[in-house]
Design a protein around this nucleic acid. Structure first.
Lengths: 200, 200
DNA sequence: GCAAATTAATGATTTATTCAAG
DNA sequence: CTTGAATAAATCATTAATTTGC
């Protein structure tokens, strides 16, 4: 390896902030003169060379573009199945008080029935043997979990791991190719998807 | 025995999209009823349990907040020294042609073949721990670099690695604590900044 | 191209904080 | 002042992406 001499530029926070500000200001590919000036200016905050500035803009531009692409892609995919859209209205009406929390939390109205149910019925234990929810680590672990979140437990017990709509298909539906590749390359949006791996 | 059974929920793309849509729709901490419904709905797209939904909203909320805080913090810190602000006008006048590129890039004026800067990782902010890989690797690499960018090299020679304004402080200014922890607690906004080394 | 090694993202847990009731 | 409910913050742990050497 190389000696202790710094192998590469290590930008200071100030330098990064300034570069970003310029980027937002519209600078994308500064020319030689500009790079000179920027370098001189940034040298006030730490060691830097012109090529660092040059590369920074190259990289930043590329990554911003990438981010944008990803975001647009996600928005595109947001047009989902009718099944989903029908649901959206249902859920947003189910409890309006929880939806429009104006301050950080009102907290009083949350599950008033949970406490009542707990006190009323001791037979909670009866189905605890089915251990539907919790990961099966140990008894120790599970009881610790239940202790803190029994209200959630109760709730979950009622519905169990999925039963409502349609007969659920054992594991994961095969409607879509779920196998990991789908999110891989941003979206596979439409055409190009250039996989130019720098032919050397 | 279920050795291969994954220990944790692995959300499908559709589930994630739906959850995000609900989040944007205003749902933050769904109550028991809502979690039930959401779980039932999402089970259409793959295996899921109520606690997954619960945790997802917890995590997503927290991480969005974190992101926001970080961003605000950055903006705050953008009020930098006068030294910097004076510079801003200077640089923006030096060459207007490069500044006001209306489309994504005109690119004609800057080395169209630039293959040097490859995309490393996706977050420019994290200066402390990530890679912004810049050439410098070997002689071979560097000479390739020079070949394409001799104009820049020339320019660089003139200015060298930092010499211009004021006596620069050897490495990085100690205005901020830069040592890897800097991103830990988001920003260390303005006041405390506990680096008081001298208590004699 | 592939597989080990490294790094980033994020699901799951734990700990600390906040507020209200007693 | 203490306690309990609810949750935000911090942390742990595992999965996925990326890089790297062959």
């Amino acid at each position: 390896m190389s000696p202790a001499a710094s192998t590469r530029w290590c930008p200071t926070p100030e330098q990064i902030m300034i570069l970003e500000e310029m980027y937002r200001g519209g600078i994308r590919t500064p020319n030689a003169t500009q790079i000179q000036q920027i370098t001189a200016h940034l040298s006030f905050y730490g060691k830097i060379e012109g090529k660092n500035v040059f590369y920074w803009f190259q990289n930043h531009k590329a990554r911003e573009r990438q981010k944008l692409r990803r975001k647009l892609c996600r928005q595109q995919q947001q047009q989902l199945s009718a099944h989903h859209h029908r649901f959206l209205h249902q859920i947003e009406q189910s409890d309006s008080s929880a939806l429009h929390q104006p301050p950080l939390y009102n907290s009083a109205q949350l599950l008033p029935q949970a406490g009542g149910a707990k006190e009323a019925s001791n037979d909670v234990m009866s189905y605890s043997s089915r251990k539907m929810d919790i990961p099966e680590r140990d008894e120790k672990e599970r009881s610790k979990w239940m202790y803190g979140r029994d209200w959630m437990m109760m709730m979950m017990m009622d519905i169990g791991p999925t039963t409502h709509c349609c007969n659920r298909p054992l594991k994961t539906l095969q409607l879509f190719p779920i196998t990991t590749t789908s999110l891989k390359d941003e979206c596979t949006t439409s055409n190009h998807l250039s996989c130019s791996t720098s032919t050397d």
